[in-house]
Amino acid sequence: MVLKAGGEARDRALIRAIQNGLPLTRRPYARIGLELGMSEAEVIERIRRLQAAGAIKRFGVVVNHRALGFRANGMVVWDIPDDRVDAAARRLADMDCVTLCYRRPRRPPRWNYNLFTMVHGRDERTVRERIERMAREADLEDVPREVLFSRRCFKQRGARYA
């Protein structure tokens, strides 16, 4: 199930209603349902189904890393040969403090990296050490990489999907 624009209208309405978070009230699903003309049970069931189908990766508390003191966030970009990238990515994805691991297209000559991992920590030194360990453990020490630390956050909020 892929929920594109032509997807199920009630799912899209529900996604729109919950994408910025549940109301902090005793019966949040009932409150959402009230807005949408759905029963509490239907809201819960649709969220459950979206999760089972993989459209929702997880459902729960989304913390703000920065506010919690994890100020350093390094986006590591790797240029991994195509025949090695899947295996390496699977190893990197499970490592400590990696919160994202995506393959993306190269755009030569301006951009030659094909794998992105996001690594968090309390400070840049911790993050750099962690990245060196990751490279060792995934046999990627021979692979070109760069670390792009975030400097300023101009905007961050949940995406609007619908």
Binding site: G21, I47, I56, K57, R58, Y102, W111, F116, A159, Y161
Partner: peptide, 29 residues
């Protein structure tokens, strides 16, 4: 939870969607 949200520790309680499954998105630079 209200206090944690007001203090900025909690962004929201809700779904994290799989990229590419709901809507379309890209990373741009």
């Amino acid at each position: 939870f209200r206090r944690l949200q007001a203090r900025g520790y909690v962004s929201r309680i809700g779904p994290v969607f799989s990229p590419g499954r709901v809507g379309v998105s890209t990373l741009a630079a």
